[in-house]
Design a protein around this nucleic acid. Structure first.
Lengths: 148, 148
DNA sequence: TATTGTTATACTCTATAACTATA
DNA sequence: TATAGTTATAGAGTATAACAATA
């Protein structure tokens, strides 16, 4: 199956292919946990931002409130995460439970191994270069950190 | 929302974030056409591989026969693509219709513009480097082109 | 036996819209 | 008025399992 120059020259296509490759392997590495890479990301975010609310979690994951709700339901049903009273009577404060912390460590080990395997043909310098280039993708004025 | 080092150090996470950025913009650029970037990719593949069958198309898109079927249905319903008799009585030969070729050209212009905008902070050399690095992602022996 | 297309069905992920409670 | 959570509903995209026709 030929992939003409139209696809090859689109950076977006290249990135998509790379993402498919990486995500498929990470998903397989998480096979035992019945959790997708995105759900593992959610656990990491909750662990590193204890007490955050669902809307903030959704924003960090680029999904909306309603989708974040479903996600938290799944993690809570599995006993990995808990909703606690928040700063408001409106907001929840999300917390990673001990069982969630345990499972997350094991998942992270598996995903790190997958990540290392999929990047093993690149040197540390090359990985740093890749990182630096990926971070610079985006429209002209991507407001690196506008705290005005 | 803090993103601790666990996420930052995973290449897969970086690539996923980059893909989200690129795909979102490409999707917006295609807004007038009611076609996703993936469907545009399918049109390109059919154009560049006239007479290919649905299974081959699916393989190139990393989806299975059944999903490829649905995809071709949508493209055919829009009058962009046609199923013609194939080399077998089992297989279809997919063909891009004139209307599909016309629309594809316009879509490509829009997506190329999006791609250029999202990569404008990288020089031509840097884009070549990025391309070279992304292509080398994958497991050790990714069988570049095993025609044995 | 193996393969292609097809169909029915279901699952995952996400979104929109509307509602409630709170601010 | 605005925001957080919630619920119901819907859509896109994908997969599995089965079947018929053909190879």
């Amino acid at each position: 199956m030929k992939q003409g120059s139209d696809l090859q020259t689109l950076v977006g296509y290249r990135v998509q292919q790379a993402n498919l490759l990486m995500e498929t392997d990470a998903r397989a590495a998480l096979g035992d946990f019945d959790l997708s890479p995105a759900k593992m990301t959610a656990l990491i975010l909750i662990r590193d931002n204890p007490g955050c609310d669902q809307t903030a979690l959704g924003r960090a994951l680029s999904i909306n409130r309603s989708s974040a709700m479903k996600l938290v339901n799944i993690l809570a049903d599995k006993g990995l995460v808990e909703r606690r009273p928040g700063r408001d009577l409106r907001t929840n404060a999300l917390a990673l439970l001990p069982e969630g912390a345990r499972q997350l460590e094991t998942m992270l080990a598996a995903v790190r191994q997958s990540d290392a395997r999929m990047t093993q043909r690149l040197s540390a310098d090359e990985l740093a270069t890749l990182h630096g280039l990926l971070v610079r993708l985006g429209p002209a004025s991507a407001a690196p950190d506008d705290d005005s």
